[in-house]
Each structure stands twice: as C-alpha cells, then as structure tokens.
Amino acid sequence: MRLIGMFAVAGAVVLASAAPTAMATAGDDPVATVSPNTVQPGQTVHLALHNCENPGEGGLAEGSLVGGGTTARSPIGITELKAGADGTLVGTATIANAERGTTETIYLACNSNPDEVVEATVTVTH
C-alpha cells in the first residue's frame, strides 16, 4: 500500500527527531531516524524505523509528490524497509529532486500499522 493513501486515513501523525545519533523514546510508538540528516542531492541516506508491532512485515518510506503531472517524489522515492537483526526496519535511499537549502520530509510507516505515519527530516545543503 502506498503511503499517500495512508495520509488520508491517518488519525495522527507522529513527529520524530531526525538526528542521526539521537533516538526519541516514545513508548511503543514508531520512531524514525535518518542518517546523515544533512545531505547533498545524490547522497545516500540510511533510514530506520523502530518499534513496529510486527517488523517481519516490513515497511515503506517515501518523500512528498513533486507535482506537475509527475509521480516523482522529493527527497526520496518509494523505498522498501526490511527488518534488521534487532527488529528495526531499515533501508537506504538516494536524495533526489530536492532543492539545495531546504529541509525535506521523509514519511515512514510499518506495514503492520500503516495508519501510523512517522516523519523524519533531512536538510539539503548548498
């Protein structure tokens, strides 16, 4: 299921810190991190989503639609997240379609609870 469809039914969006070394503790709520969180276009980032109910089901991450009749997304395209050894969902993505000097949002969700969308941000440097 695509995350965009989830935005319409999501009751609440959980905001998470995107600092690569800091992890917010939000009880059992999913928490997202992106590393590094200051990037340049074309750079690869590592995504992590913690506290999914069933990590074996995986998850998804994606950026916002760019618009203008295209399916392109910024700062990342649709990215599959898979369970790591510790149950954290992980994936990598390349920063694309992002303007320098902006802060961009990445949306992440566990497939076991797709209505709970978590946000992480990256700053695209000059």
Score class of each variant (00 low, 15 high):
Pro114Asp: 00
Gly77Met: 07
Glu53Val: 15
Pro36Leu: 03
Ala83Glu: 01
Val9Glu: 07
Gly63Cys: 00
Ile78Asp: 15
Asn113Ala: 14
Ala85Lys: 08
Lys82Pro: 13
Leu3Cys: 04
Ala98Arg: 00
Gly5Phe: 04
Ala32Arg: 03
Gly77Lys: 07
Val9Ala: 07
Glu53Trp: 15
Met1Gly: 08
Leu65Arg: 13
Ala32Tyr: 05
Ala61Asp: 00
Ala19Leu: 13
Ile76Phe: 06
Leu47Pro: 01
Thr103Phe: 12
Ala12Cys: 15
Pro55Ala: 05
Leu65Ile: 10
Thr102Leu: 01
Gln40Leu: 09
Asn113Ile: 13
Ala24Leu: 11
Gly84Ile: 06
Ala98Pro: 02
Tyr107Met: 10
Asn51Phe: 08
Pro20Ile: 09
Ala26Asn: 13
Thr38His: 14
Gly68Cys: 06
Leu49Val: 02
Asn113Tyr: 14
Val9His: 04
Ser35Arg: 04
Pro55Val: 03
Val122Leu: 01
Gly68Tyr: 08
Ile4Leu: 13
Ala16Thr: 12
Gly42Trp: 04
Leu81Met: 06
Cys110His: 03
Ala26Pro: 14
Gly5Thr: 06
Thr33Lys: 05
Ile95Phe: 05
Ala72Gly: 12
Gly84Pro: 08
Thr38Asp: 11
Leu89Ala: 04
Thr94Asn: 07
Leu81Ala: 05
Ala22Met: 15
Thr44Gly: 07
Val31His: 02
Pro55Gly: 03
Val124Cys: 05
Ala18Phe: 03
Thr88Gln: 05
